[in-house]
Simulated assay, not measured.
Amino acid sequence: MTTPNPNARYPSLVDRSVFITGGASGIGATLVERFVEQGARVGFIDIDEAAGQALAAQLTSAGARNAPLFVKADVTDIDALFAAIDRVRAANGPITALLNNAANDMRHSIEETTPQSWDKGVAVNLRHQFFCAQKVAPDMREAGGGSIINFGSVSWMLKQGGMPVYTTSKSAVQGLTRSLARDLGHANIRVNTLVPGWVMTEKQIRMWVKEDSYEEIARGQCINKKLMPEHIAAMALFLAADDSAMCTAQDFVVDGGWT
């Protein structure tokens, strides 16, 4: 569990029903922690049942105003995804903040990509974001508004190679955001893309960060500090809260100035 955030408090997030995908580890786990700290009613899903249950138990035992609800679900299984949303809605009330965080940035080459692996990559990195938004939009309409936060990536902006399905999917997220913002704006539903840079999660450090990676970061970022999950969560809180009431169809890049 990360250190409690001493910074901004958002009264509008207290008791707000929030749904987070991929919330058991990495950026997602920090999102769950920070929204719970704000007093929100948090439901989150992940395929890692052990990590999800452990996080929910840890936050509950720490005395959260509202105990988070974890539901095991695979975002590529739309029926299971919808069932999880229904369960969270039944427990926490109509969902008015959606954080489409789940993704998988496994490296892959052009040569090894097949039609099947392409479809699988799109399903985990893009498709579920649309269907989550479709599913929760009625809740937000009835509530008089809401916030959908789609998670992108700077990888395609930096012309990063070695994972064409991931970068293609993440570039498409920003197009999805803008189309949803137009279609849902009349209902006071805001849709934005939160675009992280290279965030130093445990997974990134274990799998992708090499000896010379910090030199690359120092050359690329304007602010030569490690980008951490809490930096991403701080932007997510603002975008989910009423404080960002007139922010929609935008890309909010948190990357230390790399792009």
Rank of each mutant, 00 (worst) to 15 (best):
M140Y: 10
A54K: 14
M157G: 10
G152R: 04
D119P: 03
D119A: 15
E49D: 14
F238W: 09
A56S: 14
T3M: 07
Q53L: 12
F70A: 07
V209E: 06
E49Q: 14
V124T: 13
S171D: 07
V42W: 03
W156R: 02
S171A: 11
R190F: 04
D139C: 03
R206E: 15
G145R: 05
T167D: 00
E111S: 11
L55C: 08
G93S: 05
D79C: 02
P4Q: 04
T30R: 14
M163I: 01
A80E: 07
A143Q: 10
D15Y: 13
G43A: 07
W156N: 08
A8S: 07
N92V: 00
I78L: 09
N66T: 05
Q134T: 00
L194M: 06
F19Q: 09
N125W: 08
F19T: 09
N125D: 13
T60S: 15
P164V: 02
A240S: 13
R219N: 04
W198H: 05
E202C: 03
K159Q: 07
P94S: 12
N7T: 00
P196C: 11
N192H: 02
L98D: 10
K203H: 09
L158W: 00
A240V: 04
N188E: 11
D139E: 09
G93R: 02
A57M: 02
D46I: 05
D77Q: 10
I223Q: 12
Q160D: 12
A102V: 01
G52H: 14
H108R: 15
Q38E: 08
A24G: 06
